[in-house]
Amino acid sequence: MDNQTPKPTESELEILQILWQHGPTTVRFVNEQLNQRKEVGYTTTLKIMQIMAEKGLVKRNEESRSHIYEANVNEEATQKHMLDKFLDLTFRGSASKLVMQALGNHKATRAELDEIRKLIDKMEGGAK
């Protein structure tokens, strides 16, 4: 995600999550997936996806009768971009404040803590 691509809204991010998980698909499929969590009208989903196409967040293939949409932004790049913005705005750029808050509000599992330790070790140059 470059600086030219707009940051997705919460609703757009929900749609991107579906497209990243399932790949190119129809508005109907995306709407069915959204409705598993909360009731969303088909026309609302269609309108949001049309706006996303205009913004460059998704691409629309119009070759078949049912238009197929696919994500036009990379999942990891989008996550990094949004996290960087969130970190700057919420924690004044402090990754440690973010991690401390997240761990303080969430009971980390043994596996999660092990994964965090491995990441720290890797970032320190493979100590241990």
Score class of each variant (00 low, 15 high):
113 L>A: 11
119 L>Y: 09
104 G>S: 07
112 E>N: 10
125 G>S: 07
31 N>R: 12
119 L>Q: 08
54 E>V: 14
16 L>F: 04
19 L>H: 02
9 T>M: 03
105 N>T: 06
18 I>A: 08
104 G>A: 05
114 D>C: 10
43 T>W: 13
125 G>T: 10
40 V>M: 08
115 E>H: 10
103 L>Q: 08
57 L>K: 01
37 R>A: 11
92 R>S: 14
41 G>S: 10
8 P>I: 01
119 L>N: 12
51 I>V: 12
115 E>I: 08
76 E>V: 01
98 L>G: 02
35 N>C: 13
72 N>F: 02
71 A>F: 01
67 H>Q: 09
97 K>T: 06
60 R>Y: 02
119 L>A: 14
54 E>I: 09
113 L>V: 14
125 G>R: 05
109 T>H: 04
63 E>C: 11
25 T>M: 05
3 N>E: 15
125 G>K: 06
18 I>Y: 02
53 A>D: 05
92 R>Y: 10
94 S>Y: 02
69 Y>G: 04
71 A>P: 14
94 S>W: 03
19 L>I: 01
123 M>L: 12
4 Q>C: 07
7 K>W: 05
108 A>M: 12
60 R>M: 15
94 S>E: 04
44 T>E: 05
36 Q>I: 09
128 K>M: 10
106 H>L: 11
80 K>M: 10
73 V>M: 00
119 L>T: 11
62 E>K: 08
90 T>V: 12
102 A>K: 07
102 A>Q: 05
83 L>K: 13
38 K>P: 12
49 M>G: 07
125 G>L: 05
118 K>A: 14
102 A>E: 04
85 K>H: 13
121 D>T: 15
66 S>E: 14
4 Q>Y: 10
119 L>I: 15
118 K>L: 11
51 I>H: 09
103 L>M: 09
59 K>R: 06
72 N>K: 04
76 E>I: 02
101 Q>M: 11
127 A>V: 09
26 T>I: 08
113 L>N: 08
73 V>S: 00
117 R>H: 11
76 E>A: 03
82 M>N: 05
78 T>W: 00
120 I>T: 15
84 D>H: 09
103 L>C: 08
1 M>P: 00
46 L>M: 10
51 I>N: 14
115 E>C: 08
19 L>F: 01
101 Q>R: 13
72 N>W: 02
65 R>Y: 12
50 Q>K: 15
6 P>S: 11
76 E>P: 00
103 L>Y: 08
76 E>H: 02
83 L>D: 04
68 I>Q: 15
49 M>E: 00
48 I>T: 13
58 V>L: 02
99 V>R: 08
10 E>Y: 13
2 D>I: 04
91 F>W: 15
43 T>A: 07
115 E>W: 03
113 L>I: 12
66 S>W: 14
21 Q>Y: 05
121 D>R: 15
11 S>T: 11
107 K>H: 11
86 F>Y: 14
36 Q>P: 01
103 L>W: 15
27 V>R: 08
